[in-house]
Design a binder for these strands. Structure first.
Lengths: 129, 129
DNA sequence: TATTGACTTAGAGTAAACTTTAAGGATTAA
DNA sequence: TTAATCCTTAAAGTTTACTCTAAGTCAATA
């Protein structure tokens, strides 16, 4: 059992954000202590892990909420969930490919400017003599 | 020479956004026709290509503006520009690695749910008989 | 017991990057 | 010439995902 602060540290999400996620239906059924404090389980942490994974790869909170709700709706939503994840996976692959393409461009630029810089510094050297 | 609409089509940025970028100092010195219409050159398109590359890999417009301003300031900013690009390149590499890690996780999830779905559908089949 | 830390609701504020609107006038291509 | 495109300024609106505040109460830890 983890307090909201512990979970905040583990996930990197603020306590505010954790409560916000719960209110929005991203994370459901968080247990409470007799006094009403949230007590997160390892399962909750796992769920949060998936939420962060989807979020950090470009899925909107709205879509994540949809996915979570489907999960709670039971087996008959398995097909839709698989489709949803598959599609997201395709997007991720496309995104990685795009990033790779951009990386090549930036690498080229870095080399280009580095060479220019080298030439410039050499010129400075000569002029200083 | 391209009109704002042509550039909009080529870059995928709206005419509004192109004017907005110009106002913000992201793209400077766009030529004008005698009547005052913007006339983009191939160089402008190239500059826009770099802007989109940086933007789509997570650089903020503010940082991009800074880079563009440095470029206009001449050779003595070469070092800073190289540093800026190098750092961005490191971020990109880290981001791609992170995405790859998340992709593994999502792939695992897809397979896991696919298997569950297969089992579920088999069960449905049996029950239908 | 004293001091943190947690709880609630409800709403306001923030940041980025656009996007839209409005109003009126000028230019360009067919 | 006429329809389509472009220009300007200035400001308001949009979206997402938080982030913060307030006010008052309650719980947990040393």
């Amino acid at each position: 059992m983890y307090s909201i602060q512990e979970v905040s540290k583990k996930t990197g999400l603020s306590a505010h954000t954790l409560r916000f996620y719960e209110k929005e239906g991203l994370l459901c059924h968080v247990e409470r202590s007799p006094g009403g404090f949230r007590q997160y389980t390892d399962e909750d942490l796992e769920a949060l892990g998936l939420i962060c994974c989807l979020k950090n790869t470009g899925m909107s909170l709205q879509e994540i909420t949809r996915f979570v709700q489907l999960t709670h709706a039971g087996e008959q939503t398995l097909k839709e969930r698989v489709e949803l994840l598959r599609e997201h996976r395709e997007n991720m692959i496309a995104r990685i490919a795009e990033m790779q393409k951009y990386l090549d461009k930036v690498t080229w630029k870095v080399n280009f400017f580095s060479e220019k810089l080298r030439a410039y510094e050499e010129k400075q050297q000569r002029e200083a003599q």
